[in-house]
Structure formats: structure tokens, C-alpha cells
């Protein structure tokens, strides 16, 4: 169902091909754009940063135009984005960026700045009047249904069941628009030092303080976990032992 009266924004970023490192449309943001286009015919597609060529991919995925908010390299995108999307009903974005920090905190910070509820890991989005119903991803085949009232910020999960289509004609027809930023982004002050990831990260381990003899004893006493063993009894009793174990550990509900 389409809701033309709603103001919907999709936030897009420049992604990164995990194999080649080439810039591309970020996969999660493509899903967000596709979900937004399913809700309203007119969606504001916003990008804070440079007018990178990779943004044209979003045109091919259905954006009529991509509005580029200028941002100095490495600056925080929150302030210009928050100023631009104030007054919108629904703001969609991918859960985690492919390039840059990819910390997945932008939707939360945006929601805090705009005083809106935020729901992440969204798979499906349904509008019910001024309420939006979201199916959230949970591991182990579970899905959770959450409702929030508009306006809201929603971050899409990478497994959202959407099939965005790449149409080259749309890429030719669409345009990148550069808009003046409403608010100047603060200069980057990053407490992090980044280096090429060549070495594997080290696992945090307790320091080895035991002397030789204690270490030997530790090596002998291997953890042979081996749980309970049911040998005796009829097949029915054995079956009951299995069911009892499942019930004790609350693995079955009946």
C-alpha cells in the first residue's frame, strides 16, 4: 500500500565491495531505499559526503534523485543529516555501513537528536495509519513484531527479504543533486587511530603463572566433559530420560 502523504527519507552511503574494496552502493542502504519506495512513491534519498560516482547505483535501484549534503572528509554526518530530515515521518537506513567506521550507531544518534523512537534489525515494514509495524530479525529462526508510532527511525537488517532491481535506464534518467548543508558539520576529532588490518587480532588470555608441575597436572586433567549415560532400562524409559532432559533444560515447551 502506498502512503503519498508521508514524508519518507532514505539515508544512503557509499559502500565497499568486500573482495575488491571498490566503492559501490551499500547493500543495507539499497534494502532501505527499496523498502522506502514500497511505502511511498516519493522518497527523499539523502547522502552526507562527497558526490561519489558510486551513488549513481542508487538511481539504478529506484531513487529519482540523490541529494548530496556536503561534508568534509571524516566529519560526523549526524548534524547535517539531523537538520535535513527534521520533520520527516519515517527515516530508513541500513543497519551498518560497509565503509568508514560501520559502528551501527548512526540510527540511534539520529533518533536521539530528533527525539524519535528507533528500531533496528527490521526485516519488514508495514504502515498502519500513523503506526508502523516492524518485523525484527532474531537469530534461530525467530522474528519479533514491534509497533511504534510515527515519526520513527528504522534500520534495516541485511537479511530483509527484498529484491531490489538494478535498472540502467533509471541510472541514466536520475540525477545527483547537491544541496547546501543546513548546519556545518563539526571538524573531525577522532580518538581512534586506524592502521591497515594485516595482523590477526589477539585474543585476551589469562597470563600463564603456573609452574611446570602445576601445568603438567593441568594438562593431565583434561576436561572430559561427558554427560550422563543411560544404559539400563527399556526403550520407553530411555525415551523418557531424553524428554526429561529436554524439559529440565526448557528446550521443549510440552
Amino acid at each position: 500500500m502506498m502512503f503519498p502523504q508521508l514524508k519518507i527519507a532514505a539515508l544512503v552511503s557509499v559502500g565497499r565491495n568486500p573482495a575488491s574494496g571498490a566503492p559501490r552502493a551499500a547493500r543495507n542502504d539499497v534494502l532501505a531505499l527499496d523498502a522506502a519506495l514500497a511505502l511511498a512513491p516519493e522518497v527523499s534519498v539523502l547522502h552526507a559526503g562527497d558526490a561519489a560516482p558510486a551513488l549513481h547505483d542508487y538511481l539504478a535501484y529506484g531513487a529519482a534523485s540523490v541529494e548530496v549534503l556536503p561534508l568534509p572528509a571524516g566529519a560526523d554526518a549526524l548534524a547535517p543529516l539531523a537538520a535535513r530530515v527534521a520533520g520527516y515521518d519515517l527515516i530508513l537506513c541500513g543497519q551498518r555501513a560497509e565503509a568508514g567506521q560501520g559502528s551501527g550507531t548512526l540510527p540511534y544518534r539520529l533518533a536521539k537528536a530528533l527525539n524519535m523512537p528507533v528500531v533496528s534489525a527490521a526485516l519488514e515494514i508495514t504502515l498502519l495509519g500513523d503506526i508502523v509495524e516492524i518485523v525484527q530479525f532474531l537469530p534461530k529462526g525467530q522474528r519479533r513484531v514491534v509497533r511504534v508510532s510515527l515519526p520513527a527511525v528504522i534500520a534495516l537488517h541485511p537479511l530483509a527479504p527484498r529484491a531490489p532491481r538494478y535498472v540502467y535506464a533509471r541510472l541514466r534518467a536520475g540525477r545527483l543533486l547537491s544541496a547546501p548543508a543546513l548546519v556545518a558539520a563539526p571538524l573531525p576529532v577522532s580518538p581512534w587511530q586506524s592502521e591497515p588490518a594485516v595482523k590477526k587480532p589477539q585474543k585476551l588470555k589469562p597470563p600463564e603463572t603456573r609452574q611446570g608441575h602445576a601445568r603438567l597436572l593441568g594438562a593431565i586433567a583434561t576436561e572430559s566433559k561427558g554427560g550422563a549415560l543411560v544404559r539400563e532400562g527399556s526403550a520407553a524409559e530411555k525415551a523418557r530420560a531424553i524428554l526429561d532432559y529436554l524439559r529440565t533444560n526448557r528446550l521443549i515447551e510440552f
Binding site: 565497499r16 568486500p18 574494496g21 560497509e98 565503509a99 568508514g100 567506521q101 560501520g102 559502528s103 551501527g104 550507531t105 580518538p191 581512534w192 587511530q193 586506524s194 592502521e195 591497515p196 588490518a197 595482523k199 587480532p201 589477539q202 585476551l204
Partner: peptide, 30 residues
Amino acid sequence: EVATHVVELKPGAVAMYWQGGAALARGLMP
């Protein structure tokens, strides 16, 4: 301050991947 997806912990310091795993960012533990 928050550090997410932290892959390395040391006393007072953390490290995490940036750029989709191409870069490792280090800093003080937030």
C-alpha cells in the same frame, strides 16, 4: 563514547575493524 564490534581487548585499549575489515582502528577503552 562507545566502541562496537570490538575484536581486540587490552588493558585500557580496544581495537575494531573499519572499512569493512580492511583497517583496524585502535584507541583508548571507552
